[in-house]
Design a protein around this nucleic acid. Structure first.
Lengths: 196, 196
DNA sequence: ATAATTCGAACGAACGTTCGAATAGTGCGT
DNA sequence: ACGCACTATTCGAACGTTCGTTCGAATTAT
């Protein structure tokens, strides 16, 4: 088997399993068995289990093209999430339809979403609040905005993210028109409610 | 120390830790050390680690007063979530302000939310969709509703749930008037968008 | 023939559980 | 009120299991 072939196979399997049950919920024995190779291969290719996890996150984040390195601790992951959201905000200001763009360029949003949300759901919103506060300080956000509105809008974007994922997997129905409408809806909340 | 005193102390500590890092993320050695007792105490009082986890979930669910037993597998947890959401829907129809009520009667919503969301975030929405489909079949929900709207409304309630939690912890500002306004907002989505 | 890849055994560490001993608490007969 | 038998509680050591990693040998590719 080609070198990259096995490497990609391991990442593919690990992405699914880690997204389903998290880093601690999957053993390298289960992973290697699913791939049909020896457990040593994970250390050989990724330097260990956490290296594989990092590679999985790396691949998910690489869709955004702005993050160099991913580590496994929650604190570091949160920094990446913050970076990711800042990136969205910056591009969002110049292109009101970026929400659709950044959504569609994710190859597998469900898994990406699970990987991020699972270990850090409770802290993400705290990070959102912090970003918003900083955004106000830096004159990116309106000074008089209601924090509830802001968090709601941000959470709304995440909501749409979930919904589009569900639609992609055909778990719910959706039409292109309705899709556009939803984007406009969140766009409206975002531009009127947050940006100065 | 009184029997129930230590038992409650263990549940209290376990609730916080499990909510933060999940069942696999916390060892009984860390738990017992945090409580200042021997590791044997967990098996003594709860029959093991999973027994403690069950007791933690049990206590969170007991606020609703309608669930008898909680087990640890994802599948069974989802059944409980479904039961919980059905319970909300039934009471919601008779009392439009129940959202506030069911929110306020949770003693520690953040931890409850984390415990449920962490292992099953991806599946919860599938359950929501299923509930909605059944609700349509049973003439509880409108037949012509857009599935996207419905899931959005349900997710909106969860959103409000998060926001009220944040407000309680004073992570964001909120006023009683704004609180009422938000409730009315989600109420409106819910009654106009879902219930027939 | 030299390097790259794959394997399986073995390792130490951490895990949850079990168990006998030690301690604290309780109820009863006097 | 007191001593005793019994139960409940707490502890720490030990057990077997599972974990991730390492390493030398075997195999394959260059």
């Amino acid at each position: 088997m080609d070198k990259n072939e096995l490497r990609n196979k391991l990442i593919s399997i690990a992405t699914r399993l880690f997204a389903e049950r998290g880093l601690n919920g999957v053993s390298i024995r289960e992973l290697s068995k699913a791939a049909g190779v020896s457990i040593s291969m994970i250390s050989y290719y990724f330097g260990g289990k956490e290296g594989l996890y990092s590679s999985v996150l790396q691949e998910q984040f690489s869709s955004f093209g702005h993050i160099e390195e991913i580590t496994t601790t929650d604190a570091e992951a949160l920094v990446k999430i913050e970076s990711y959201i800042r990136w969205i905000i910056v591009r969002y200001r110049n292109n009101p339809y970026l929400l659709r763009y950044y959504t569609s360029e994710l190859t597998n949003p469900t898994q990406f979403f699970s990987l991020i949300v699972q270990p850090a759901i409770g802290k993400v919103i705290q990070v959102l609040v912090q970003i918003i506060e900083e955004g106000i300080s830096n004159n990116i956000f309106r000074k008089d905005l209601n924090p509830v509105d802001t968090v709601l809008a941000m959470a709304g974007m995440v909501n749409y993210y979930i919904l589009s994922t569900l639609a992609t997997q055909e778990l719910i129905n959706h039409s292109p028109e309705r899709d556009e409408e939803l984007i406009r809806h969140y766009m409206d909340i975002f531009t009127k409610g947050i940006l100065r």
